[in-house]
Design a protein around this nucleic acid. Sequence first.
RNA 1: GCCGCUGUGGUGUAGCCUGGCUAGCAUAGGGGCCUGUGGAGCCCUCAGCGUGGGUUCAAAUCCCACCGGCGGCCCCA
Length: 435
Amino acid sequence: MKFSLPRGLRDIEPEDFELMEQVREAFNQTCRLFGFDLMEPSPLELLETLEAKSGASIRDEIYAFKDKSGREVGLRFDLTVGLTRWVVSNRSLQYPVKIGSFAGLWRYDEPQYGRYRWFYQWDAEAFGPRNVDADAEVVDFTYSLFRRLGLDEVSIHIGDRKLLEEYIERQLGVKDELLVAEMMRALDKVRKKSLQEILEEYSSKVEPSTLSQLLDFGRLSGEAEEVLSRLEEYRLASTTTLINLIDLLKHRGVKNVVLDLSIVRGLDYYTGIVFEAFTADQALGALAGGGRYDILPAVFGRPDLGATGVAGGVDRTIIALKRRAAPTKPKEPTVYVAYVNKEVHAYAQHIASTLRREGLPAEVDLAERTLRKQLEAASKRNSEYVIIIGPKELSSNKVIIKNIKNGKEDVKSITETINLLKQVKKKVEVWCNHT
RNA sequence: GCCGCUGUGGUGUAGCCUGGCUAGCAUAGGGGCCUGUGGAGCCCUCAGCGUGGGUUCAAAUCCCACCGGCGGCCCCA
């Protein structure tokens, strides 16, 4: 264990990397469908930029250090800060600005299962409009992305911070900002702990009878129409936002929407609609979360801009993909070009290169191993086909093509072989586009 | 940052309580049996006690510290 990794870091190994690429592809395609431009903000920011979002205390929770010239810098802990900084400082952008990013982040947290100090997120943000259309766009984006990944059971829980604030102020008569924040924090735990536990935990900070009312209010959760009708009796003006949002989502064909007033999310900057995406197993935690954060552009000097967005954890999504029973993406047919002896070694490499130039994945042994070993390697590498080349094939200008799964062999010309492989490849592509 | 559990080849483990021969087994990797046809079998081989101290004639085993992993708390921007 001499050359181990620093705490909380890991290598992304081939199996996980493959799944991560699936998520990245689905995200990139969804960005194109919705007209979000892709970019990646700088991984390193000045510390003051990172602190703008949530105060100097952030320093303890991120990778922050002095560079060789003594500048205080930090590794990005989310993509929102960098994207917002970029948008805010580019005066020539046309609004709405819709941008997405898929990139690695660093946080100095205690590592735990599915939680590392270096991890990936995807992120889509819409800047400019303050209306609920932009929120609907972002929720629809999230829904569509999970659909594309085949995680059809993902449901989106939507809440509204404004509505909660109005309820706390008007109905509970609490005005003190810090107290309101504590109450929100408590409410956020409703999905993790029992009411009793929460009331006890906060008994020193918040009047239990008041908190209890809020928790009851927050337990309003379920099918949208039903929750909205039960909200009527409270006569809260902010309810209109949710009504409009739900209506828009219906027209957009977004399904699996749950109204859940206990959704709070991070306290530092969300201001309106907030939402989280869950799989059937809620213990896994949210796969993605987002909402409206109009405060942040204002912090960066653009109070005229609205902002709403969503960020998703790639590691949790990969866990969900692994648990899913549905068939995983079939591999393109790969071919192993095996050769009988040294004399035809060079010819085999020629064949493999020819296939690759035709866009067909092909492998060839690099170590002059015996035919037996080459076939063994081909079968372990999960190749679909083996091409076998010996002196006979070289002189007749043909190859043996063998289906590794059923062991059947054929003697074909190189052109015929290429055509066969291309047909198989096409079938796989059609399969992929259907799912 | 705090609390609890835990650490033996790449992976999974036996041995630890009760200190004592060359740290055992399985699997994965490399090779051979097998010089133009793979997945089996047999044989060989590579590879380990997280790190550093202490106790002892003797430490994987007992003690301490650190490091890593897992679970929880805080936080989740």
